[in-house]
Design a protein around this nucleic acid. Structure first.
Length: 126
DNA sequence: GGGCTGACCTACT
DNA sequence: CAGTAGGCCAGCC
């Protein structure tokens, strides 16, 4: 038993399996909510692979209709350059679902998974 | 094999 | 709050 376990995916050949796990996690994000790259990586089984989540989503087939726009960075911001078409497209899709941008940022306490659970337990803040 | 890039994250200043 | 530094690791040259 190693004390420095990193996860079930230690070989490159396992990366493809992990990619599919990422697709499932992203596909499970409810409308109107978001997850960070790090959260998706952890839920898929590799806590330190936040940077690989974008690779995984880019590999997804078009027909899958993956809700890629519900994945943002831990700062609550969209990870595309602000002047890119990808940024605009992602922001539109999210606002269409009721996600609110405040000064270019999304309140993770409110629209993230953890935030949703907290609201159920503690009630709506404000 | 080596070096660079990137839809990232944490910690520190 | 902004900026920096180190860590992460698959993919591409």
């Amino acid at each position: 038993m190693s004390s420095t376990e990193q996860g079930p995916f230690t070989k490159t050949s396992d990366f493809d399996s992990w990619v599919k796990a990422v697709w499932q996690v992203v596909d499970g994000i409810p409308r109107g909510h978001v997850l960070t790259y790090g959260e998706v990586a952890r839920l898929a089984g590799m806590s330190r692979a936040a940077r690989r989540v974008s690779q995984a989503m880019r590999r997804a087939p078009r027909g899958m209709k993956l809700p890629w726009h519900r994945v943002i960075n831990v700062q609550g911001r969209i990870s595309f350059p602000q002047d890119s078409s990808g940024y605009q497209r992602q922001k539109e899709l999210l606002e269409e679902e009721g996600v609110v941008f405040l000064k270019g940022k999304i309140d993770l306490e409110r629209f993230g998974y953890q935030g949703a659970l907290d609201h159920l337990l503690w009630g709506e803040p404000m």
